[in-house]
Design a protein around this nucleic acid. Sequence first.
DNA 1: AGTACCACCTGACGGC
DNA 2: TGCCGTCAGGTGGTAC
Length: 262
Amino acid sequence: MPELPDVEIFRRQVTAWVLNRRIRSIEELSPEMLGTASPAELRDALEGATLEDTARHGKHLFVRLDERGWLALHFGMTGDLLHVEPGGRRPPNARLLLEMDDGDRLAYTDVRKLGRMDLTLDVGSFVARRRLGPDALDASRKTFAEALAIRRGALKPALMNQRVLAGVGNLYADEICFQARLDPRTRIDRLEPGEIGSLHGVVKRVLRTAIERTANASALPRTWLLPRRGEGETCPRGDGRIERTRLGSRSTYFCPSCQGRR
DNA sequence: AGTACCACCTGACGGC
DNA sequence: TGCCGTCAGGTGGTAC
């Protein structure tokens, strides 16, 4: 689940569920998922803190703990956030549980434990320390073009590289290549400047649409690859069969007849 | 610089 | 039913 659109939904849910509430108590159920912060530091930062703001950069969600800094959450491949009403059961695979003053709980769950939780005093410095690229939704056309232009390799791995552009994962990278009608193996240095520009538009459109659809629990557009992302499926554009290949050791699906290689 | 592979984890699924 | 290999939306380290 958790690529940029999913994390943006998490951010909105945190805002709706627990913003401006105070944390009464916490349970750290998987301290091995902590980044640099120790369990004691996490507890000190969270207990009694009021959740005052939210932010997102790429696939990272940040929740501000009054003056104590920010909780930084990454969701790995199977991370999720759940709202538990008073009296509700603790969800399976809960890794962090925050109980609010009014008894509501916020649960961070992750079956595979590939996600991470951490603390930071400042979102900007966290992003800089991790050397994350510009946020894929925030990036201006100029920033986007500059980030990609210094690359020489294949398009899809660059889109997925969080140090180039933050937020795009394996699924949406395939969708972006499909919508841009570019073979995911296309070398970036073969793209015209105008094609980089229109690619920027595609990235924004795909991510924004995904956020809207997810927020409204509606299906993704029928013209998209994602609902048919499987080997031998028919291309949503009519002719052509979807093929599977590997790029950067990740499964990659594309339509060879409408995604041209340069 | 770019790419491939491994490790970190767990669960689902297909083949035998 | 059980065992085994493979796969899964992520990331960091290492080795070419």
